[in-house]
């Protein structure tokens, strides 16, 4: 049997970015939720809930970027140079957010902490929005020329569909973050956090329905794979069940099960995105023949095979110690002398 390495790496790059969305998604969400609580102690609980893990979560983005570069260099080159200013904004947001977490609790002064709280909130929200806008543009299609280079403008990237996707992503990350926080907090703070979950789920469902409707109407090719293979509709059903399961688990006090449900929702969303896109990685509109696909934008099969070996050795180890770290830092957050 021959392995279709291009298909394999289409899936693996997708898995890495899904891993990024699921993991960094909750800590970006925590940043977006920060202004909802006042008081330094409670805010420190928020920071320390993500303290030991946010850095590792961001590595998924770095590795996803590296994998995209290695497997589909033409996509990496076109997207990053084409979306130049948008990516620079994303980088600035991620830098600000990282140092805000790092610096905030190093000094006790209220103005200092307020400043970094603002940096953390703005950085997290902007990053979430831009990630969603980028996804929105990839779904919508971007103008490419015959060499596969981006032929649009920065303002063209801020179209209504992409912005709707951006806002939906912010809501999704906030929902995901609030469920994560419910696991990591207790007492009054937990009660307040839990009270945000249902409104955030509703906000996400409303926004998701709007973007889905727009996708069905204006980007029907995203559903071609589902029309051709009706059994794939089960992914949609599973995703809706996963969302619906969140309030049920919260109601029963099983915050960790709610969190897993939320993770499953995001994974299934990414699966739908992948099914809709395949084999395209960047869809060219209005000239679909210039699209970059898993076949015309890839590295040689030899490189893909080498990368497969690297992934086969590396990924199980990574998963093992990522799980260990989450296990070591399980349970409610306590502020100690080494905390942020």
């Amino acid at each position: 049997m021959t392995i279709d390495y291009n298909l394999l790496w289409f899936v693996l790059v997708g898995v890495l970015f899904a891993g990024y969305a699921i993991l960094d998604g909750f800590d970006l969400g925590v940043g977006a939720l920060l202004p909802l609580i006042k008081g330094d102690h409670d805010r420190r609980i928020f920071y320390n809930a993500i303290g030991p893990v946010w850095d590792g979560n961001e590595v998924w983005l770095v590795t996803g970027g590296g994998a995209l570069f290695a497997a589909f260099p033409n996509v990496y080159a076109t997207v990053f140079s084409g979306f130049y200013l948008a990516f620079m904004l994303l980088l600035f947001a991620l830098i600000f957010r990282a140092v805000a977490i790092e610096f905030r609790s190093k000094e006790p002064w209220p103005w200092w902490r307020a400043m970094w709280d603002r940096g953390f909130f703005i950085g997290s929200t902007t990053a979430s929005l831009l990630i969603g806008v980028a996804m929105g543009n990839i779904v919508w299609g971007v103008p490419l020329d015959e060499r596969g280079e981006f032929a649009g403008t920065f303002l063209g990237l801020l179209n209504p569909y992409a912005l709707a996707m951006g806002i939906t992503t912010v809501a999704l990350f906030m929902m995901h973050g609030s469920i994560y926080l419910a696991m990591k907090t207790d007492g009054d703070l937990q009660k307040r956090v839990r009270s945000w979950i249902n409104p955030l789920i509703i906000a996400f469902i409303v926004l998701f329905s709007i973007t889905s409707m727009a996708t069905l109407l204006y980007v029907p090719r995203m559903t071609d794979a589902l029309r051709a293979n009706p059994w794939l509709f089960s992914v949609v059903v599973l995703m809706i069940l996963a969302v619906a399961n969140i309030p049920r688990e919260i109601h029963h006090g099983r915050d960790w099960a709610a969190f897993l449900s939320s993770c499953a929702t995001m994974l299934l969303l990414m699966a739908l995105f992948g099914l809709g896109m395949f084999p395209n990685l960047v869809y060219s509109s209005p000239h679909p023949e210039y699209s970059l696909t898993a076949y015309n934008a890839a590295s040689t099969e030899k490189t893909l095979r080498i990368m497969t070996i690297i992934a086969a050795i590396g990924v199980p180890i990574v998963l093992a110690y990522t799980a260990s770290v989450y296990y070591i830092f399980r349970g409610k957050v306590k502020i100690g002398p080494d905390s942020y």
Partner: peptide, 11 residues
């Protein structure tokens, strides 16, 4: 070059 960067991330 890309595989080296990806390996850096993973390893």
């Amino acid at each position: 070059f890309g595989s080296a960067l990806a390996a850096e991330g993973i390893f």
